[in-house]
Amino acid sequence: MAKRKQPPRWGVWLGIADNSFTRQKTVKFGDASAVNSGRLWSVLTLIILILAWWIATIGGIIDPLFWPPLEGSLYPWDNPNRARPGVVDRFVSLFVDGYRNISLWEHVGTSVKRVLLGVVIGALVGIPLGFAMGLNSVARGLFDPIVEFIRPIPPLALIPLVILWLGIDEVAKIFLLFLAALFIMLIAARAGVNSVQISKVHAAYSLGASKFQVLRYVILPNALPEIFTGLRTSMGVCWGTLVAAELVAADQGVGSMMMIAKNFLQTDVVVIGIIIIGAIGFAIEIFMRMLEAWLIPWKGKG
C-alpha cells in the first residue's frame, strides 16, 4: 500500500493541513474531534485586530483617553506639543522601570502568588472536606446546608464582609480566594468520590484491602481527574476574583496597578493591565491542561 505523505507539522499546527488522524475520517461535520485547530484563522484575527489598532493610531482617530495608540511615535500631521504615550513604549517602560516604583514583575508576581496561596489553602481544606462528605453521612449532613447555600453566591459578593472582618490587607484577599477555591474543591472532591464504580471498591475489598487502603489506592486515584478539574476551575475563578478584589482595594497587583492608572487617566496602563490579565489567565489554563495530561493520563479511560 502506498504510504501517504505526512503533512508538515507547522501546517497541522496552523490547521491548514489535516493531520493523519483527521485525514482518515470521511465524516467530519458533526464530529468535533475531527475538526482541525483552525489556528490560521486565529492568527488572522490577531493580525487584523493589531492592524486596525495601528491604523487607528496613525490616523489619530480615537482620543487616547478612551483607547491608547499602539505606539507613540509622532507623525507629521500630529500636534508636536501633544505627547502620545503608546502602548508598546509603555509596555517596555513598565518592564524596565516598573510602575510607580514597583516593577511589573512584582505586580504580576503578587497577583499570581495570591491566587496560588488561595487555591492551595482552599484545596488543602476543601479536598478532605469533600472526601468526608462523599464518604460519611454525618459529614454530608453537617456540611450540606452550608455548601448548598454558599455555592451559588459569587465570591465577589463576599468582598464587603471580608473587608469588614479582615480589612484590606493581604490576609483579607487570600481569605477571599480561599473561600472561592474552597467550595469548588469541596464539590469536586465529593463528586470524585461519588464517581467511583462500586465494582472497583468491591474488587479491592475482595483482594484483602482495608478501609484505609481502599480510600488510598482506589477512591483517591479514582477521584483525581475530578479533583484536577476542580483545581483548574478554581485557578480560573480565583484569578478573576482576585483582579476584581485588587480593583476594590490593594496597593500591589495587576488590578491595583490598573486602578491607580485610571486615577491618572493613563488609559495605556489600564489596557496593558487587561492584556496581562487575559494572557496570564490563558497561561494558567494551558499550564493546568499540560499538567493534567502528564499526571492523569488515565482520565476518561476507566
Binding site: S199, H202, A203, S206, Y217, V218, N222, K301
Partner: peptide, 14 residues
C-alpha cells in the same frame, strides 16, 4: 478467601 471477577470496569486504570 473469596475472589471476584466482574464483567468489566473493575480493573484499576491508574
Amino acid at each position: 478467601e473469596r475472589g471476584v471477577v466482574f464483567q468489566q470496569g473493575a480493573l484499576f486504570e491508574w
